[in-house]
Design a binder for these strands. Structure first.
Lengths: 105, 105
DNA sequence: GACGAGTGCAACTCTGTGGTTGCACTAAAC
DNA sequence: GTTTAGTGCAACCACAGAGTTGCACTCGTC
């Protein structure tokens, strides 16, 4: 995963409302109107969040009759997780090196 | 990792300036003043970001003489990555189940 | 003890964005 | 053809937060 696309995904994931949307979608695809019935926010607010989530690839629209259901994409979350893991491991390696040098003195 | 602590960490990571701070710290511990010399933002702005990063456990203060250097903590990034990985895998499993049911019809 | 680098606190500006309401449009359903 | 559920667009409000400047404080250094 490119670093340039990482930050927007993380920013999208750093919001409680969007997580409640993702959690709801995690139990089955749903439209913006359907989600508005379950969550304490308006349909338009949810529509905005879904648009943002779609932009960063965390969600995918699926036409069903006259409604547009959204499907959550776990793969994107996996990519993001692996990128973070790599960066974290890199930092830990540096700290381990420093500790090793300090102990050898 | 608790879900209640996950979102603030992700929100902290969803900012370009904080990533540039983390990247700088990734090459060696540094104080707010030292970082202000390298980055195009004021020391106070950096201090605020460091405080936030410390709150979510991504960074750790270390007193050295009269200055306070900050150390990046890769472990926290690892925890976050694993939590995301789990959620993503859960969603993917559900999609796989749905696909399987659809094909069996 | 005086100096100064580094930090902390406070007030302020300004942009971004999460939220709302209202209206127009479209296409299934009858 | 009429109804109506679902969506899209636009304007607007309110708050959070990213950034700034200015000043006070603290504690190593000399």
């Amino acid at each position: 995963m490119r670093t340039s696309t990482l930050v927007p995904v993380l920013a999208a994931l750093g919001d409680d409302t969007r997580w409640s949307i993702l959690a709801a979608l995690g139990e089955g695809d749903a439209s913006a109107s359907a989600l508005a019935g379950r969550l304490p926010v308006s349909r338009q607010a949810i529509a905005k969040h879904l648009q943002l989530l779609e932009q960063v690839g965390l969600v995918e629209p699926v036409r069903v009759g006259r409604e547009i259901r959204y499907r959550v994409l776990g793969a994107r979350l996996g990519e993001t997780a692996r990128t973070l893991e790599q960066v974290g491991a890199q930092w830990e390696r540096r700290l381990a090196t420093i500790k090793q040098i300090a102990e050898s003195l």
